[in-house]
Design a protein around this nucleic acid. Structure first.
Lengths: 146, 146
DNA sequence: TCTCAAAAAGAAATGAATTCCATTTGCAAC
DNA sequence: GTTGCAAATGGAATTCATTTCTTTTTGAGA
């Protein structure tokens, strides 16, 4: 069951340690984005002890490797999301229930080309994320709480 | 000279206090995005004393009123930018020299419409920002330092 | 099995951002 | 001009996510 994740880690030159596999499994099964602290709490049950720095380190490494995605919440906290969609796309992020919907890539490639050509700059990263309330949350009072 | 800024503040139901006017003036004259701490340091010279919370509060209020724009740096710090362009658009942000170029709005309106129609969600905010090195910085070693 | 670089733990540090509350100040009404 | 009061400010202390440091443990190839 973890063979796939082990393979993923190997391709990133990361050792397939139990913590890493557990973090990947947790993210892979979550239907929402999760915070580092939440990952830490949940894995404490599984491992008895696990360091918070370990969680931060691994989430960052996985994100750097493109396996998981960062979600920048308006509350300034950083969350992480496992998204199996390998196509270039972006996300509609529900601030209430934390579910995420894929959104097809917009004309961002055009923009990057424009920057390269018109402005002569070099693009190193971009940020595209749409925040709001999903259908279910925008229909309930719950959604109004932020 | 400050008449315009006073007017801006009035329209946001904010009193035209000296600090606010100074913050607006500083941002308005800056060619780059600046950090709250930088605003604080520079205004200390002008006022003798000014509280850091005042700077944070005002920057946040001005951003909430749409007068200035937040810049989310990959280094996780928040910066602010005064951009006179009132059209809907986005930014190409140079991580080295902090200059910003306007980029025409991409298909984001389409995306928001798609979310409203296909997903039934409500969009409360979005994040579009392209990071990189401007022409000048990508040409020099300076640019390589991040 | 042995070796060693990579990984993890725990405690402590960092630092941007915020809260609290006493004091001051715009500014509109008198 | 004065006055009154809500809004704005300062400064200290605090919060809290994130990171750094150092030592110990462990995965996995030789």
């Amino acid at each position: 069951m973890h063979a796939r994740h082990s393979q993923t880690l190997k391709s990133l030159n990361l050792k397939a340690t139990p913590r890493r596999l557990a973090i990947l499994a947790l993210l892979g099964e979550a239907m929402t984005y999760v915070s580092p602290e939440e990952v830490w709490h949940r894995l404490k049950g599984e491992f008895g002890r696990i360091g918070l720095p370990t969680v931060y380190r691994n989430l960052e490494e996985l994100a750097a490797g493109g396996v998981i995605t960062k979600v920048l919440h308006p509350n300034r906290q950083l969350y992480y999301l496992f998204c199996p969609n390998r196509e270039h796309h972006h996300h509609f992020v529900c601030l209430a229930c934390r579910r995420v919907e894929d959104v097809d890539a917009c004309g961002l490639e055009n923009i990057e080309r424009e920057i390269g050509e018109r402005l002569g700059g070099r693009v190193t990263s971009h940020l595209v994320q749409v925040n709001g309330l999903c259908r279910a949350c925008s229909a309930t009072e719950e959604g109004m709480q932020r």
